[in-house]
C-alpha cells in the first residue's frame, strides 16, 4: 500500500512536470505545476518531513503559483483564453537537461549514503523550531533581512512616480 502510494506520488510529480514543460498553453503549464508541487509535498510526507510538506503547499501553491497565474492573467492578452508558450532553443535546453541528469545520477550513485535509523520521528516541528532559533539563527535572520529588502523593493517599484 505504501509502495503503491509512493509510486503514485512519484508518477504524478514526474508526469505533471513533463506537462509543465511540454504544454503549449501557459495556463495548462501552471495547472500542471500545481500537481507537481503537490507531488513534491507528497515526497516530503514520505521523508517524514510533514511540516515541510505543509510549507510546500502553503508557500508554493498558496503563494507562488497564485502569483504565477495572476501574472498570466495580467498580461495584455488578458481577454484571450488561448495564451500560448513556445519553447525556443529546445535542442540546447534538452542537451543541458540530459547532461544535468547524468551528472545527478553520477552523484547519487557515487555518494556513500548514510543509512538513518529506522525509527519514525513522531514530531518534527519542535525540532525544526529549536534548530532555527539556536544552531541556524544567523542564516534565519539573514533570510529575514533578504525578504525585508525584497518587500521594500517591491513596494518601491509598484509605487506611482510623484
Amino acid at each position: 500500500m505504501t509502495e503503491f502510494s509512493f509510486w503514485f506520488v512519484i508518477g504524478l510529480t514526474v508526469l505533471s512536470a513533463a506537462v509543465v514543460v511540454l504544454s503549449n498553453q501557459l495556463i495548462y503549464s501552471a495547472m500542471a505545476l500545481l500537481l507537481t508541487l503537490f507531488g513534491v509535498a507528497g515526497i516530503y510526507v514520505f521523508l517524514w518531513a510533514d511540516f515541510m510538506a505543509g510549507v510546500q503547499l502553503l508557500v508554493y501553491i498558496g503563494g507562488i503559483l497564485v502569483l504565477i497565474i495572476f501574472g498570466i492573467m495580467l498580461t495584455n492578452r488578458i481577454s484571450s483564453v488561448r495564451l500560448s508558450q513556445t519553447n525556443v532553443q529546445q535542442g540546447v535546453g534538452g542537451a543541458i537537461a540530459i547532461w544535468l541528469m547524468i551528472l545527478i545520477s553520477l552523484v547519487i550513485s557515487k555518494t556513500p549514503w548514510y543509512q538513518a535509523d529506522a525509527i519514525e520521528p513522531t514530531e518534527t516541528v519542535a525540532g525544526v523550531g529549536t534548530l532555527l532559533l539556536t544552531k541556524y539563527l544567523l542564516p534565519f535572520e539573514a533570510i529575514s533581512l533578504l525578504l525585508l529588502g525584497a518587500l521594500i523593493g517591491a513596494a518601491l517599484l509598484s509605487r506611482k512616480e510623484n
Binding site: 503547499l57 502553503l58 497564485v66 516541528v125
Partner: peptide, 15 residues
C-alpha cells in the same frame, strides 16, 4: 501532528 497548519495549507488550494 501539523493539524492546524494542514488546514491553513490546504485552504490555500481553493483560491
Amino acid at each position: 501532528n501539523i493539524g492546524i497548519f494542514y488546514i491553513l495549507a490546504m485552504g490555500s488550494f481553493g483560491v
